[in-house]
Design a protein around this nucleic acid. Structure first.
Length: 197
DNA sequence: AGTGCGATTGACT
DNA sequence: GTCAATCGCACTA
């Protein structure tokens, strides 16, 4: 039984939300059907984070980070890959959680079509890949993920396994902080063995 | 108005 | 392991 995540259930703190979202579900409503996956890897971009996109204050690109927690912040990285984030604080405060990897649950055939690959492990392992698998782009930026719509967050009673922590991937500023969280030993977590101790 | 550089991925040596 | 693709934005002038 899958239920939509209520905003009140979301921790009102970025790092706590990043941990909380591990084991929760992202659901995408596409014309072909529902696509969903379990979150197995996140990164927190906390208040005042030098590595966070909210750092310069609200702009046209990052304004969704300043929405009340539970809204989508979607942006294009390297001109190539879309990134899905969940805003994480009260309205006016800029911070978010990057969703880095999903374990496919529902709509695998649709994900395979969106990604152009067959292997289950390659469908949503990595932030750009999961966005492609769920056909997420700028059109979903600013969306409320706690309301019915084309994309939302859900939970089923699943208990996540042991949570690992590490430094965040691919950043240079604030690179020493352990704000990446993942399910230990889960094959759908991005990075090789070195990143998943 | 021009420049530099990413919260990445996939192809290739 | 190395590296190009590709584009929007922040920053300098």
């Amino acid at each position: 039984m899958i239920k939509r995540l209520a905003r009140a259930a979301l921790p009102a703190d970025t790092e706590a939300l990043a941990r909380f979202l591990i084991g929760k579900i992202v659901v995408r409503d596409l014309p072909e059907g529902l696509v969903s996956g379990r979150i197995v890897e996140t990164e927190a971009y906390v208040v005042g984070d030098a590595a966070g996109h909210a750092r310069p204050g609200p702009t046209a690109r990052n304004r969704s980070l300043f929405l009340e927690r539970g809204h989508a912040y979607v942006y294009l990285a390297y001109g190539v890959s879309w990134m899905l984030n969940v805003s994480s604080e009260t309205a006016g405060v800029g911070a978010g959680v990057l969703i880095r990897a999903l374990e496919p649950l529902q709509g695998v055939a649709i994900m395979q079509e969106n990604r152009g690959v067959e292997r289950l492990r390659d469908l949503a392992r990595g932030p750009g890949r999961l966005a492609m698998a769920l056909r997420i782009d700028r059109a979903l930026d600013g969306l409320d993920l706690c309301r019915p719509g084309p994309l939302w967050l859900a939970h089923d009673g699943h208990k996540a396994g042991a949570i690992g922590e590490s430094v965040r991937i691919g950043i240079t500023r604030e690179a020493e902080r352990a704000l990446r969280f993942y399910v230990r030993g889960n094959p759908y977590v991005s990075g090789g063995r070195a990143l998943n101790p």
